[in-house]
Design a protein around this nucleic acid. Structure first.
Lengths: 347, 347
DNA sequence: AATCAAGTTCAAACCGCTTTGGACGAAACA
DNA sequence: TGTTTCGTCCAAAGCGGTTTGAACTTGATT
C-alpha cells in the first residue's frame, strides 16, 4: 500500500493525501480526517526510502565506533550511551546507524557517511587531545556533537561532557581529608581527553595540599579488569605503597580490589578506593549501599542528552554550538575510610 | 557531484556511467576505465538514498535491542557481538541500524522496520522460550537470523548458537572429576533460552553421577556483579555450602569472587569456580594464564558469523534456513581445584 | 455584476539513481 | 548484397514520496 494507491482509493490526489498526513494547513479538516482514517485502516506506512530521497534528509544519526586493531577493546560505556541516545532517536523518528570501522579508516568513514547521504549528523565518541576529527567534520559540514571534549581544538563545536577534572579533584580531596597522603591514580589511556582531565584534577588536589604527585603512583592504561589488577598489584608492591586509589572505571576497580584482596587488604579498612561510576546497567555499584565510594554520572543520561542536542542542532542549523557540562556526584560507599595509622594497635 | 553531472562531463549518458561503475558487461572496457578514472577524480559517491529507492533494497541490517522497562539492563555482550557483526557489514557495504525499543513495542518495531523498508534483514537477540518474534518475522517475510535458539518454536529458522548445554555439562563433569559433590549453579534469567540449556547441561551431568540437583544450589537472575554476589553469599551461608560454582557469566563471576573473599575463601583452593567467558574485550579472562577456569566462546566471532549468515540468506532467499552450533572450549584456569577435604589437616 | 481573496485541490516536476527496451554501427553470416 | 548477430550506447520510465505553481470554488468586497 503506497501513497498513490491510497490516494486512488480516496478519490484524491497524492498531493492532498501527503499533505493531509503531514499536517499541512491547506487541507480541509474533514478530508484530513478521512485520509487519516483510511491510512490507519489500510495500515499505510510511507516508504522511508522515498521520503529520504525526496526530502534529502537521512532521518538517521551516525555513531562511528572506532575499533583499534592493536588494542581492540570495545568501550563498554558505548552500550549504555547508545541505549540512552537510541531512546531519543526512536521518540523523534530517527534511526541510529552504527559504523564499526577500523581505527585508520575513521576519516574515510565520516566522509562516506556524509557524501552518500546516510546520516544527518554524528555523535563523536572518545575524543582525544587535538582530535583531528573535529576540524574534519566541521570542514565537510556534517553536524556533530562530541561526547566529551577535545582539548586543543581551535574550532568551536558542540559537546556534552562530565566535569571530569572537578570530579577527580573532589574525590582526591575527600581522600586527603581522610588523612591519606599516598594516593594512587589508576587512569585510562592518557591520550584520551577525559583521562587527561582526571589526572589534572587529581594533581591539582594533591598539589594544593603540598603533595608532589608521584609518578610511581600514576598509571595509565586500558580500563579493563586485568589492567587495573596489574597496576594495583605493582603499586601495592612498592616499598611505600599507596593507602588509597583513585580509579577511572568500575571495571578497573574490580581489578584493583582483586589485587588488594590478594594481599589480604580489606577495602574501606586497609585500603581506600574511589572509582568513577558510569552507572552501567550491568555493573550497578550496589543497590542501597554503594559498594564503592564513587564519582557518579550516568552515561546513559549523557546519551539521551547528547542525542537531543544533536537533533536540535540539525533542526536549527544556524544557531551557535551548544555545550553542556554535567557534574558528577560524589557518593560515599564502603570502600573508603580513614588512613590506617602505621599499625599502632598491632604493637 | 551526482551521476548526471558526471555523465555530462564525460559526454556519456547516465545509463552508461551507471553501468560502467557497477560492472555491467555491456560497456566498452576503454570507456569503463575512463568513467572509473573520472569518478575517482571528481570524488563521486553515488547517493545511497537514491540507490535504495531505485533498487528497493535498504542495504541495511537491523538489530532490535529490547530494553526492558522493569529490569533495564543492557546486555553487555551486545557491544562485542555488534562489533563483530559490524565488521561484516562494513566489508559488504551494509549499514547497521540499531533500534532501541521498550520491551512492549518490540513487535511494532519489527513491523515498522519492514513496512517502511528500513532494513533488509534482522538479527534477533536474546531469544526466549517460545519466542513470539520468530513466527512474527516469518509471517511478515523479513529475513532474520537468531543469535541463540528458541526452544519450542515450530517454524524452521536460521540461527547461530553456542552449545550451551554441552559446555555446562562438561564444566560440571570437570568439577565432579575433581571430587566436588555440592556444585552450585548461578544462572542467567531462565526464561532466556541459553539459560535453560545451561541448566539442562548442569543437571544432566549431576544426575549421571547419581546426584540430585539441589534447588537451594541453583539461582537464576540477571547476570550482574551484584546479583552474582548476592546469590553466592546466600549459598555460602547455607549449613552445607557448595564447594564449587558454575557461573553463567564473567560479570556474575566477579560477584561470586567477592562473596567468596568476603568469607575468606580463596578461589582454586577453598572454592572452585567455573564461569562462561564470552571473551568480552574489556573483561579478558587473564592474558597468558586464565584467571578463571571457563567455558569459552567468543561472542564477537558469533557476531561476525551471524552477520555473514544473514547476508547470505538475503542474497539467496530461496535456500533453506541455516544453522550453526559453535562449541565452547573448556579452558583451565586458576579458579578450580580438587575439593578440599573436610579440613583434615587442620585437626 | 465584476473583482478579489481565501480555502481547497490537483497536475507535474523533482530527488538521483537503476533498468527496460530500443537504436545504431560494425562485424559475421548466408 | 541482404540479413543476423554482437558490441555499445542511450532515452525514458520507473522507485514512492514531496513540493511548486496553478486552477477551481465559494463567499465577500466594490
Amino acid at each position: 500500500m503506497n501513497l498513490k494507491e491510497l490516494a486512488l482509493k480516496l478519490g484524491l490526489s497524492p498531493t492532498t493525501v501527503s499533505r493531509a498526513l503531514n499536517g499541512y494547513p491547506e487541507v480541509n479538516e474533514a478530508t484530513r480526517e478521512r485520509v487519516m482514517a483510511a491510512a490507519k485502516r489500510h495500515n499505510y506506512r510511507p516508504n522511508l526510502r522515498a521520503i529520504r530521497l525526496a526530502t534529502g534528509r537521512a532521518m538517521a544519526i551516525g555513531h562511528v565506533i572506532p575499533v583499534a586493531s592493536k588494542h581492540e577493546v570495545v568501550n563498554p560505556v558505548f552500550a549504555d550511551f547508545i541505549a540512552g541516545a537510541g531512546e531519543t532517536y526512536s521518540r523523534n523518528g530517527y534511526d541510529m546507524i552504527l559504523s564499526i570501522v577500523p581505527d585508520e579508516d575513521e576519516e574515510r568513514a565520516y566522509r562516506e557517511l556524509h557524501a552518500r547521504g546516510t546520516v544527518d549528523g554524528i555523535i563523536v565518541h572518545a575524543p582525544r587531545m587535538n582530535d583531528p576529527r573535529l576540524p574534519l567534520l566541521a570542514g565537510i559540514g556534517l553536524p556533530f556533537v562530541v561526547h566529551g571534549r577535545a582539548t586543543g581544538s581551535e574550532v568551536a563545536y558542540s559537546w556534552l561532557d562530565v566535569n571530569n577534572r572537578r570530579a577527580f579533584q573532589r574525590a582526591a580531596e575527600f581522600l586527603l581529608d581522610l588523612g591519606h597522603r599516598r594516593i594512587a591514580l589508576v587512569n585510562g589511556l592518557e591520550f584520551m581527553d577525559f583521562a587527561i582531565r582526571r589526572r589534572t584534577g587529581y594533581c591539582t588536589a594533591l598539589t594544593a595540599r603540598g603533595i608532589d604527585p608521584d609518578p610511581a603512583l600514576m598509571s595509565s592504561d586500558e580500563m579493563t579488569e586485568l589492567r587495573g589488577y596489574r597496576s594495583a598489584r605493582e603499586m601495592l608492591g612498592l616499598q611505600a605503597p599507596p593507602t588509597a586509589f583513585l580509579v577511572s572505571s568500575m571495571i578497573s576497580g574490580l581489578g584493583v580490589r582483586r589485587a588488594a584482596e590478594e594481599r589480604g587488604l580489606r577495602l574501606g579498612r586497609d585500603l581506600s578506593v574511589i572509582i568513577h561510576d558510569d552507572e552501567l546497567s550491568y555493573l550497578r555499584n550496589g543497590e542501597d549501599v554503594p559498594i564503592y565510594t564513587a564519582t557518579r554520572s550516568s552515561v546513559r543520561e549523557a546519551g539521551r542528552q547528547a542525542a537531543e542536542m544533536l537533533l536540535d542542532i540539525i533542526a536549527r542549523p544556524e544557531t551557535a554550538p551548544q555545550q553542556r557540562l554535567l557534574e558528577a556526584e560524589l557518593i560515599i560507599g564502603q570502600s573508603t575510610g580513614p588512613v590506617p595509622s602505621a599499625a599502632p594497635h598491632r604493637n
